[in-house]
Simulated assay, not measured.
Amino acid sequence: MNAIDPAIHVAAANIRLDGVTKTYGKLPVIPRLDVEFRAGEFTVVLGPSGCGKSTLMQMIAGLERVSGGKIMIGEREAQDLEPKQRGCAMVFQNYALYPHMTVFDNIAYSLKIAGMTKAERRVKVELVAKMLGLTEYLGRKPGQLSGGQRQRVAIGRAIVREPAVLLFDEPLSNLDAQLRHDTRVELAELHRRIGATTVFVTHDQVEAMTLADRILILNKGEIEQYDTPKTIYHRPASVFVAKFIGSPAMNVLPVSGDGSVLRLSDGQPVAESHLRGDFQLGIRPEDIAVVGTGGASSFNARVRYREDLGSHCILAAELSGTTIRITTPFGSEVPDRNVIFFTFPLRRLHLFDAVTGKAISGAFGAVTKEQQ
């Protein structure tokens, strides 16, 4: 990790939303939101299309007015301030560069509007260009650049103002897979170097998991979970989070408890539990342990198809009327037959309420099948 560059380090500000709501007519997009983004952290706002994440971003930037509640940026109440008064800079999905201007002039434009001298502008632009690998392109126009280079120009235009808050609205969506990977690395490095509070909106879980200090997962304008990537992956707070994070997604199976044992819908026992009623059992594909032969300690399922991806293999199999996916690592022996046997390690099981979808802790007792 590189040290923060003192020449471009900014005074990061925390962002707090107190009871923020947003409605369009009678349609609530964000019913009520109470959340704080910590100063200097890289926070990713993640969720499916239409969940309210871009609206949230635009309300912080001042491009959308809040319908209710309060936005604090640092120590200032900001919901009624104009965008230029908030100390934020925003990078959009479509770059929004001036096509008739050179890279230098695109990056320097906000400094020029602010009244900075030509000499001062040159120093700052050259510093940012060097950081982003754009020095040799300063004399070119956007039409002469690749998509990745144009995105870096847009980022440069944002950070040259030394904002306390950097906002990214799905900035990598227009890039191909390899370029998205490379730009993710550049963004992570950039954040470490400048130290600004960064809020990054995306629907891509890979971007979220690789970039974020913490992830805010939205569902229909409400917070499903707000935590570190590791916690969200290994301890999802709901079925929605469990299925949204992970590729392939977590397997979720209906189970019922009689006060002593949890059983699948076909009656097979999974684990001892004191719970009664209907629940949803979750286990990630990579946590299922394939075994060579069947027996009292294992489940069995018919394989519908397999995907050999080189680094790992994904099996789709039928268990208790539900299709589950099993991921096996490179080099492991996967039986080449229609029926496979496997176990569910108890420490890897998750249980969720059948109605609310919320995670239930302390649900399991001893294992009824040998799963450790």
Score class of each variant (00 low, 15 high):
24 Y>K: 09
235 R>D: 08
176 D>T: 00
75 E>C: 10
372 Q>G: 11
364 F>N: 05
189 E>S: 07
125 V>N: 01
325 R>M: 09
174 N>F: 05
124 K>G: 07
255 V>P: 02
94 N>C: 06
296 A>P: 14
327 T>R: 15
4 I>F: 01
34 D>F: 10
78 A>T: 00
209 M>R: 02
9 H>S: 05
149 Q>Y: 12
144 Q>E: 15
137 Y>S: 15
274 H>L: 10
51 C>I: 09
99 P>Q: 13
117 T>M: 02
235 R>T: 00
78 A>P: 03
8 I>S: 08
71 I>N: 03
90 M>K: 04
87 G>E: 10
275 L>F: 04
171 P>D: 13
226 Y>N: 07
101 M>N: 03
85 Q>M: 15
165 V>R: 15
331 G>T: 13
323 T>E: 12
317 A>E: 08
97 L>W: 07
49 S>Q: 09
254 P>D: 10
230 K>S: 08
112 K>A: 11
256 S>Y: 07
368 T>R: 05
244 F>V: 11
116 M>K: 14
277 G>V: 11
365 G>S: 05
110 S>V: 13
119 A>L: 07
292 G>Q: 15
60 I>K: 11
101 M>C: 09
318 E>I: 08
142 P>K: 12
242 A>D: 03
73 I>T: 14
168 F>W: 03
331 G>Y: 15
187 L>T: 07
1 M>L: 06
371 Q>P: 06
160 V>N: 13
182 D>L: 12
197 T>R: 14
31 P>N: 00
64 E>K: 00
371 Q>F: 11
283 I>Y: 10
356 T>K: 06
205 Q>W: 02
71 I>Q: 01
173 S>H: 13
265 S>A: 14
157 R>M: 12
181 H>G: 01
290 V>Y: 11
354 A>D: 13
372 Q>T: 14
221 G>H: 12
88 C>S: 14
98 Y>S: 00
338 N>A: 15
6 P>I: 05
148 G>Q: 13
312 H>I: 01
224 E>L: 00
113 I>Q: 14
136 E>M: 05
100 H>C: 09
228 T>D: 02
246 G>Y: 07
301 A>C: 01
118 K>S: 15
99 P>K: 09
211 L>R: 08
130 K>W: 09
270 V>H: 01
346 L>T: 03
285 P>V: 01
239 V>F: 00
334 V>H: 10
164 A>E: 03
306 R>I: 09
249 A>Y: 05
253 L>E: 04
323 T>F: 01
97 L>D: 09
6 P>D: 04
302 R>K: 07
319 L>P: 07
252 V>I: 15
350 H>Q: 02
42 F>H: 08
215 I>C: 03
214 R>G: 05
